[in-house]
Simulated scan of single mutants.
Amino acid sequence: MESPLRPPADQGFRLIETMLWTPEGGFQRGDVHRKRLAFAARRLGIAPVGAEAALAAFTADGPQRVRLTVNAEGMPEITHAPYSPLPEGTVWRLAVAETRLDADDPWLGVKTTQRQLYDRDRAAMPADVDELIYLNGAGHVCEGTITNVFADLGQGLVTPPISDGLLPGVLRSSLICAGKVRIQHLTLDDLLNAGEIYVGNSLRGLITSVLQGA
Rank of each mutant, 00 (worst) to 15 (best):
E143P: 05
Q28H: 05
R67V: 12
A47N: 06
P23H: 03
R6C: 06
E131R: 02
L101P: 04
F13W: 15
L108V: 00
E196H: 10
A103S: 12
R93Y: 10
R122E: 09
V110P: 02
G179A: 14
R42D: 04
V32S: 01
V66K: 13
R6L: 02
N148F: 01
G74E: 15
E98D: 11
T69E: 10
L188E: 07
F27E: 00
F13M: 14
L132H: 04
I146S: 03
A81V: 14
N71Y: 03
T59W: 05
G12H: 04
W92P: 00
A97T: 15
L117A: 13
L68N: 09
A53F: 06
G154A: 13
S173W: 12
T90R: 15
Q155S: 14
D189N: 05
A51F: 02
I176E: 10
G45P: 12
D189Q: 10
Q64I: 07
L94P: 06
T79S: 11
D152S: 06
A56V: 03
A72C: 01
I162E: 08
V170T: 15
N148K: 00
G50P: 00
A40Y: 04
P160L: 12
A95H: 09
R115K: 13
E17Q: 11
T187G: 13
T22G: 03
Q11F: 14
A40K: 02
K35Y: 03
L167G: 00
G156C: 10
R6Y: 07
L37A: 01
N148H: 01
M1L: 12
R34C: 14
W92V: 13
R67A: 09
D130T: 08
G109Y: 02
R100L: 13
P87G: 11
A54D: 13
T99P: 04
D152C: 03
T147K: 01
Q212H: 08
L167V: 03
L86V: 09
G74K: 13
G62P: 05
G26R: 08
Q155E: 14
A178F: 04
G195W: 07
V110N: 02
P160M: 12
V70E: 01
A57N: 10
N136I: 14
R65G: 03
V49A: 07
E98Q: 10
L15P: 00
P7D: 08
R120C: 07
G50C: 05
D190I: 10
A138D: 15
P82Y: 05
L206H: 09
T18R: 04
S202M: 13
G109T: 08
S209R: 04
G62K: 06
Q64E: 12
Y83V: 05
E143D: 14
T112G: 00
P48H: 08
S163A: 14
D31M: 15
L203H: 09
G205M: 05
L157M: 12
A123H: 11
R6H: 08
R93T: 06
D61W: 02
L171E: 03
G195Q: 02
A124D: 10
T18P: 06
V66L: 09
G165S: 09
A40G: 03
D190M: 03
R43K: 13
S84A: 13
H185N: 10
D105I: 10
E52D: 15
F58T: 06
M125I: 07
T159S: 06
M19E: 00
C142N: 11
I207T: 12
V158Y: 00
I197G: 01
V32D: 02
L132F: 11
D105A: 08
A57F: 06
A9M: 07
Q11H: 14
V170D: 01
A51Q: 09
I176W: 11
V70C: 12
